[in-house]
C-alpha cells in the first residue's frame, strides 16, 4: 500500500501544477476556516443593516461544540479544487499514455488505480487533520467557556467531512478514468451537480424517499448545512449513519467500477 502511494506521489511531487493547486487549496482551507469571525465583522461593517439586525458576537460560529459542524461544512465547499487536481492527475496518465507504460513496467491495472485511490486518501486525511486543528484552536480562542464535557461533542463531523472528501474525490477519479480527457471530465464534474439537481427536483414529488440515494446528494448529506439554526430553524446536528452508509456505497462503486470495466 505504502509502495503504491510512493509511486503516485513520485509523479506528483515534481509536478508544478500539483504544488500550485494543492498549495492554494490548503492555504485557502486554513485561512478561510480560521477567519470566519473576521468575515462576519467585515459584513457588519460593509452592510449597515446586517449589524443592526444581528449582533455578530452572539453568533456562536466558533463556539464549542458548534464549531465542528460549522467548519467542516464550510471546508466541504473547497473540495472542488482537490477534485480538479485528481482529474488532472489521472487524465495526464491517459494523455501521456504513461498508464500503458506503468503496466508494461509491471503494475497491474488494479495497483495503478489503487495508487491513485491512496493519494485521494492522503489528501482527504490531510484536509481533515488541518480542519480538526483549526476547529480546535479557534474553538479555544472564541468559546466563552471551555468544558471538556462537551468540547468534542460533534467532533465526529470531522470524520464525516473526511468521508465527504474521499467519496467526492473517488467520484472525480472515476470520471477521469472513464472520460480520459481533463477538460471534458472537469466540465462533467461541474455539470453533474446540475444534472443531479434536475433529476432530483423532477422525481421529488413522486419518490421523495430515493432522493438521499443520489451520489452527490449522499455526499452533501454527510455534513448538513448548520447555519439555519442561527435563524432558529430545526437542523440535523448529528452525523446520519444512513448518509454514511450510502456515501460509502457510492465510494466503493466508483473505486471498483473502473477496475473491472
Amino acid at each position: 500500500m505504502l509502495h503504491l502511494l510512493k509511486v503516485d506521489l513520485k509523479k506528483l511531487f515534481n509536478y508544478r501544477t500539483f504544488w500550485i493547486i494543492c498549495g492554494l487549496y490548503f492555504l485557502t482551507l486554513g485561512m478561510a476556516t480560521a477567519s470566519g469571525m473576521e468575515f462576519l465583522k467585515w459584513l457588519a461593517n460593509t452592510f449597515k443593516d446586517f449589524g443592526s439586525k444581528l449582533n455578530i458576537d452572539r453568533i456562536p460560529l466558533y463556539h464549542f461544540p458548534d464549531v465542528w459542524q460549522n467548519l467542516t461544512w464550510g471546508s466541504g465547499l473547497l473540495k472542488l479544487m482537490l477534485a480538479i487536481m485528481v482529474i488532472i492527475s489521472i487524465t495526464n496518465e491517459y494523455q501521456y499514455r504513461t498508464i500503458r507504460q506503468n503496466i508494461i513496467d509491471g503494475m497491474s491495472r488494479e495497483q495503478f488505480i489503487l495508487s491513485k485511490v491512496f493519494t485521494n486518501l492522503l489528501l482527504s486525511i490531510s484536509s481533515m487533520v488541518l480542519v480538526f486543528f483549526v476547529a480546535l484552536f479557534t474553538g479555544f480562542i472564541y468559546s466563552p467557556e471551555i468544558s471538556f464535557s462537551y468540547m468534542f461533542t460533534g467532533a465526529e463531523f470531522c470524520l464525516s467531512y473526511f468521508l465527504e472528501l474521499f467519496a467526492f474525490l473517488s467520484f472525480a477519479l472515476m470520471l477521469g478514468i472513464l472520460i480520459q480527457r481533463s477538460g471534458l471530465s472537469i466540465v462533467l464534474l461541474f455539470s453533474s451537480y446540475l444534472i443531479e439537481t434536475i433529476i432530483k427536483t423532477n422525481i421529488d414529488d413522486y419518490f421523495p424517499s430515493i432522493v438521499p440515494f443520489f451520489p452527490l446528494q449522499s455526499i452533501m448529506n454527510l455534513v448538513p448545512l448548520p447555519f439555519a439554526k442561527y435563524a432558529f430553524q430545526e437542523i440535523q446536528d448529528y452525523v446520519s449513519l444512513t448518509a454514511v452508509a450510502i456515501a460509502l456505497g457510492w465510494t466503493f462503486l466508483s473505486t471498483i467500477s473502473p477496475i473491472y470495466d
Binding site: 513520485k10 509523479k11 515534481n14 509536478y15 508544478r16 495526464n92 501521456y96 499514455r97 504513461t98 500503458r100 507504460q101
Partner: peptide, 10 residues
C-alpha cells in the same frame, strides 16, 4: 513513453 515534466533521472 515518459512523464514530460519529469527529468530523465526522475
Amino acid at each position: 513513453i515518459f512523464y514530460p515534466y519529469l527529468s530523465g533521472q526522475k
